[in-house]
C-alpha cells in the first residue's frame, strides 16, 4: 500500500508524540526512585552529619547520647562480615561447582535448583529462628560472633550459589574441552581454568549478597545478639553487636539525642557499604584485565 506524503507526515507526528510521552514517563519513574533516595539521604545527613566525628567512631555506646559512639557495633559488623564470607564463600562456591560441573541434569538436580531459588526468598527472620535452634541451642554456640555469622552465612548462601552458578555457566565450554583434551581431570579443569575465569562474576554476586546481609538486624536479634556492648569481641565465641541493631536500638529510644546519633550511625553503615562495593568493583576490574589481556 502506497502512503501519500501528507498521510505519512501525520502518522509520523503521532509516533513522535508517543515516543515523547514514553520518555517523559520513564524519566518520571527514574525521578521517583532517585528522589526517594535523595530525600532519605538528605534527611539522614541533616540529622546525623553534625554528630559524625572521630570520637563517634572510637567510642563505645553509652547511656548519654553525646558520649556514645559506634566502635563496638562497627567492629562487630566488620568481624561478622569477614566471618560470614569465610563460611559462606567456600560452601556456596563448592555447591555451585557441584551443581554446574559435576551433577547430572535430572529431576533431583532440578528439585535442588528450585529449592535454592526459593531459599533466596525466605524472610531473613526465618533464618534467625533456624540459627537460634541450630547454632545457639543445639550446637551450644550461645549468642556468639560465630553463631551470628553462621546464621548470616545461611542467609546469603542461596544468593551466592545462584550467582556463582551464573558465573560458572558463563565460562565457555571450549575452555573445559581444551583442558580435558590434554588429560586434565575434572577437578584440575575446574580449579585451573573454570574457577579463575568465573571469579570476577562470583565476586560480584557475593558482594551483593553481603551488602544485603550487612543491613540485616532481624536474624541477629532473633538469635539474641546484644544491643549494648561496651567491649570488642575477643574471639569467635564472644558476644557481639552490629550496626543495624545499634541503630534500631537508638531509634527506638524517646530522646532526640539518640535519634541524631542513629542517623550518624546510618551514615557510617552506608560508608562501609560503599567501601565494600568499591572494593568489589576494583577487584573485578583488576582481575578481568588479567584475563582479557
Amino acid at each position: 500500500m502506497k502512503v501519500g506524503h501528507q498521510e505519512r507526515r501525520r502518522m509520523l507526528a503521532n509516533r513522535y508524540r508517543t515516543d515523547f510521552l514514553f520518555r517523559i514517563c520513564a524519566v518520571a519513574m527514574l525521578l521517583i526512585g532517585l528522589g526517594t533516595l535523595a530525600v532519605l539521604l538528605i534527611d539522614v545527613l541533616m540529622d546525623g552529619a553534625g554528630k559524625l566525628s572521630w570520637s563517634f567512631l572510637t567510642s563505645f555506646p553509652s547511656r548519654k547520647p553525646e558520649q556514645a559512639g559506634v566502635l563496638s557495633p562497627l567492629v562487630g559488623t566488620l568481624y561478622l562480615m569477614l566471618l560470614t564470607a569465610a563460611l559462606a564463600l567456600p560452601v556456596g562456591v563448592g555447591a555451585a561447582v557441584y551443581l554446574e560441573e559435576y551433577s547430572k541434569q535430572n529431576w533431583f538436580s532440578r528439585i535442588i535448583e528450585i529449592n535454592i531459588a526459593n531459599l533466596a526468598g525466605v524472610p531473613s527472620i526465618i533464618y534467625g529462628l533456624l540459627g537460634l535452634e541450630l547454632f545457639v541451642r543445639a550446637m551450644k554456640l550461645e549468642r556468639s560472633l560465630l553463631a551470628g555469622s553462621a546464621t548470616m552465612a545461611l542467609l546469603v548462601l542461596p544468593i551466592i550459589i545462584i550467582s556463582a552458578r551464573e558465573a560458572l555457566r558463563a565460562v565457555p565450554s571450549s575452555i573445559r574441552e581444551a583442558s580435558l583434551a590434554l588429560g586434565a581431570s575434572q577437578w584440575q579443569t575446574v580449579w585451573n581454568h573454570v574457577l579463575p575465569l568465573a571469579f570476577p562474576g562470583i565476586l560480584t554476586g557475593s558482594i551483593l549478597a553481603f551488602s544485603r546481609a550487612i543491613g540485616e538486624a532481624a536474624p541477629l536479634i532473633t538469635i539474641g545478639a546484644l544491643t549494648y556492648i561496651a567491649f570488642l569481641p575477643d574471639g569467635l565465641l564472644a558476644p557481639f553487636t552490629v550496626m543495624p541493631i545499634q541503630i534500631f536500638n537508638w531509634v527506638s529510644r524517646p530522646q532526640r539525642g539518640f535519634h541524631e546519633i542513629a542517623a550518624a550511625a546510618i551514615l557510617v553503615l552506608m560508608a562501609v557499604l560503599i567501601l565494600m562495593n568499591a572494593l568489589a568493583v576494583y577487584l573485578r576490574q583488576k582481575y578481568q584485565k588479567r584475563i582479557n589481556l
Binding site: 575452555i175 581444551a178 583442558s179 580435558l180
Partner: peptide, 19 residues
C-alpha cells in the same frame, strides 16, 4: 578417559587457547 585423552590429543573447530 583421562588416560585415553592423554594418548589421543584433540584440536577443536574454533581455536580455544586458555586466556
Amino acid at each position: 578417559p583421562i588416560e585415553i585423552r592423554y594418548r589421543i590429543g584433540m584440536v577443536f573447530q574454533k581455536p580455544n587457547p586458555f586466556p
